[in-house]
Design a protein around this nucleic acid. Structure first.
Lengths: 216, 216
DNA sequence: ACTTGTGAACCATTTCACAGCT
DNA sequence: AGCTGTGAAATGGTTCACAAGT
């Protein structure tokens, strides 16, 4: 069924949904592609093409129905039932993620965390039970976890990724500053903060003329 | 001079440099494009093209000199002197970033942090002086800050971005889950953790056949 | 008059493939 | 024999532009 929607499109659809939810649908129950495009910082044609890709339609007279769109996007983006997620690495970043996620993402339940620090094993940190890394494979299997968030130092990232994949995880959100070598059918999203800062520092440098920077 | 190198290429160059630094140049003072490609998870042709773009050369016999490459990449990526950066928003994520960055990025000095919480103003958090947001414009000007890291809630992101830009910042690293509307000559890198998790959740779902997922 | 939906054109980026070097 | 450097081709993604709808 799913017609091979590009990752970039999925990303924008997630953004559209978030922006639409911030709108008060009572004030304005409909929105035109160019208005949503403005909010998202993309072109109107891009919005229409993205929505078309997942079968969302609007009317030339009124545009797209806000609530309708939110529901259709959710039907596309969300799995039928909530998906279980684990966090690997409960350092500074890991704790920030624990504080950030559970609140606003009820469809992705962080069911367990793992850390090599023996002090942390067994404790409950920010509402999330923390286990030793040695228990990871068993817990992931038992809980039917579909994705893992990797927030460990570079040196351990490949290792924990392999363990997670062996246990049946199908998606990885990788904050470690190294690319992971995993089988092709495992989806990996890298969030490389160091590289991002390098890019910002590079383009923030004085010396770019009229600034014809090609961003993506 | 700088010949309009695409942001994606700059990102990979930053990655190559990081990977090369992890190598022990004594063990292996030279590296072939396919070996570096393997480490970076890209094609060998990609590596050669990227290095060519910034004028790095190798020899068909030995490949590229590791230390030489690190130096050439640094000459390209780094500004002549260290650049000053500020952090806006000292919540959970902001503190994690403070703990993460200063250690490993000596070229990007986080010279100040800002928060609306009056409790934090004046204090030194993780080695970084924290100011009230009202002082932001003045501090950014005084310190000659070239980039800002935005780690505030969605509702405040546009506001603080505008203030930072008004004060002369040229690059933004945005962790808030909304796109920023800033002038075209300001480089913005969005790190949208919510969207990234949505993408992982989407592609981690069961039901993708032989997995012909188009990633980027 | 202003919109949506969409084939076609366009553009950026990646990969191919091979000449030239060692 | 195996590499680098690089035009040329291919791929993937975005924008154009316009027919059709209201």
């Amino acid at each position: 069924m799913t017609k091979n929607v590009p990752a970039k499109t999925v990303g924008r659809l997630s953004l559209y949904r978030r922006l639409l939810r911030r709108l008060d649908a009572r004030e304005n129950p409909h929105i035109f592609s160019h208005a949503l495009a403005d909010l998202a910082g993309v072109s109107a044609a891009q919005v229409r093409r993205d929505l078309m890709t997942v079968g969302c339609g609007g009317s030339p007279a009124r545009g797209y129905g806000v609530n309708e769109l939110i529901d259709e996007l959710s039907a596309f983006l969300d799995a039928p039932e909530a998906q279980n997620v684990v966090l690997i690495g409960v350092g500074n970043l890991g704790r920030a993620l624990l504080a950030y996620f559970p609140a606003r993402r009820p469809r992705a339940r962080i069911v367990a965390a793992f850390d090599t620090d023996a002090q942390k094993a067994g404790r409950v940190i920010l509402g999330c039970r923390c286990h030793a890394v040695s228990e990871m494979e068993e817990v992931i299997r038992r809980e039917g976890v579909s994705a893992a968030i990797i927030a460990v130092p570079a040196a351990h990232a490949q290792d924990v990724a392999e363990t997670a994949v062996r246990a049946g995880v199908r998606g990885l959100l990788n904050f470690a500053p190294v690319p992971l070598r995993v089988p092709a059918h495992i989806y990996t999203e890298d969030i490389d903060i160091s590289t991002s800062l390098d890019k910002v520092m590079y383009f923030a440098r004085a010396g770019f003329g009229a600034d014809d920077v090609r961003n993506d």
